[in-house]
Simulated scan of single mutants.
Amino acid sequence: MTFTLDHTDASSAARAGRLHTSHGTVETPIFMPVGTRGSVKAVSPRTLRQDVGAEMILGNTYHLFLRPGLDVIEGGGGLHEFMRWEGPMLTDSGGYQVFSLSDHATLSEEGVEFKNPIDGDTHLFTPENVVDTQRTLGADVMMVLDECPAADVSKAYARRSNDLTLRWAERAKDRFDETDPRYGHEQALFGIVQGVVYPEVRRASARALVDLGFPGYAIGGLSVGEPHEQMYEMVSVTTAELPADKPRYLMGVGTPANLLENVARGVDMFDCVMPTRNGRNGQLFTTEGIINIKNAQWTDDHTPIDPGLDTYVSQTFTKAYVRHLQKSREYLGLQIASQQNLAFYCWLMREARAAIREDRFSSWKEEVQPRVSRRL
């Protein structure tokens, strides 16, 4: 995996580049739909490619380890072949589950012991076996094991946690360097900057990871309860410490406004469950604003979901029809909403890339951000 930085916007830190992988080249900034269990919910790989316009997706190491298990995925030729996704893929490490499944996780120097909520068994995730697991999954980009603390922990805890994450990162890199990729394609391992909302801890984390020499860097531990302004401050603090010639990935973020604000601060890659999760609950992101499709105001609105977006679902189905499907809990309504939202997120990043390359990102963001963030 290599990264080419093509252009930096004249009036911000926004960057346009290209991430080159064995499964193809993607342009950045990019949004990656989340396929937690080997599937982007309610959307097929073919639809992701042909209609949504997704170029790279994400899988969840923890959940795939539990089900269907590594033997099944290895027998299927790796995750790309198993789920029939031909493009680039990233897998996380299970570090976020330290936060999201904290009641089922126990930390030690060795790693994280999880209690399986499915059958009650325990599984130890270490920096080394998480690399082994991701080798078996076969993703183009792999992540080190880290601890993702809650937003309200003390500075002292943040320091201890980050020190542990850095020791794990060094162990993970050693394991990566002594093992070989699978399935005939190359893999890359990213480090993860932690530090909660404490600038000095973030700086120390970033500097130490850069010294270890990863080919890319993630910014973790944000969008976990802190105010948006603190998120933006921590991103600015972190990107200032990261090398310009390496990709920067902000994990688990976020709203359209979050994406644009963090693109302006030099972030290249994003993922979030929001487009599909919110879509399944009746929220549609459109080029004109955010729609709660279950509201009565859309009952007789026979206009397309999003006239400003040139995709099949955006142009073909009406607000009245999608409201009917959602109120009736018809599966097609969940599919349409998920596709619309993912297509919108991919469109937003394409438009951002074009604006960056033409040195008009700041003015474009000032125009588009209020419009796509307003409630209709």
Score class of each variant (00 low, 15 high):
267 V>D: 04
175 R>D: 10
82 F>Q: 03
261 E>H: 15
148 C>G: 04
295 N>K: 13
22 S>G: 15
198 Y>L: 11
8 T>E: 03
261 E>N: 11
155 K>L: 15
161 S>L: 08
84 R>A: 15
238 T>D: 03
184 G>T: 08
326 Q>I: 15
360 R>T: 15
312 Y>T: 12
8 T>I: 14
319 K>V: 10
32 M>H: 10
36 T>P: 08
36 T>S: 11
124 L>I: 04
257 A>W: 14
33 P>Y: 07
90 L>R: 01
39 S>L: 14
357 R>V: 15
176 F>L: 05
147 E>N: 04
168 W>V: 07
71 D>Y: 02
212 L>T: 07
155 K>G: 13
332 L>K: 00
338 S>F: 02
39 S>I: 10
85 W>Y: 09
139 A>W: 14
65 F>M: 13
289 G>T: 04
201 V>C: 09
257 A>L: 13
233 E>I: 00
342 L>Q: 06
27 E>T: 13
10 A>H: 03
270 F>L: 08
286 T>V: 06
263 V>L: 05
184 G>S: 06
238 T>C: 09
161 S>H: 05
217 Y>P: 08
214 F>K: 02
22 S>N: 10
114 F>Y: 11
343 A>L: 08
281 N>L: 15
237 V>E: 09
219 I>Q: 03
330 E>T: 05
251 M>Q: 05
224 V>Q: 02
340 Q>F: 03
43 V>W: 04
190 F>T: 01
139 A>P: 12
169 A>E: 02
366 E>M: 13
50 Q>G: 09
209 L>E: 02
188 A>P: 07
331 Y>Q: 02
285 F>W: 12
130 V>D: 05
185 H>P: 13
25 T>E: 14
228 H>R: 14
209 L>T: 01
295 N>I: 05
77 G>S: 11
1 M>E: 03
241 E>K: 01
17 G>T: 01
76 G>M: 09
28 T>Q: 09
23 H>G: 07
322 V>Y: 00
179 T>I: 12
4 T>L: 14
85 W>T: 06
177 D>C: 10
246 K>V: 03
103 D>I: 07
131 V>W: 04
304 P>Y: 05
25 T>I: 07
171 R>P: 14
120 G>M: 08
266 G>N: 08
368 V>Q: 00
298 W>R: 00
201 V>N: 01
273 V>N: 02
361 F>K: 01
219 I>W: 07
108 S>H: 07
288 E>M: 09
40 V>E: 02
238 T>L: 02
198 Y>W: 06
74 E>V: 15
229 E>G: 00
234 M>Y: 06
92 D>M: 04
28 T>S: 12
329 R>N: 15
257 A>C: 08
232 Y>M: 05
276 T>S: 13
41 K>T: 03
83 M>A: 11
167 R>V: 11
281 N>A: 11
313 V>M: 01
176 F>R: 08
84 R>M: 10
14 A>N: 01
247 P>F: 03
167 R>Y: 12
247 P>K: 01
278 N>D: 15
36 T>W: 00
52 V>K: 01
136 T>W: 00
197 V>Y: 01
86 E>M: 02
182 R>W: 01
18 R>P: 15
217 Y>L: 06
11 S>P: 02
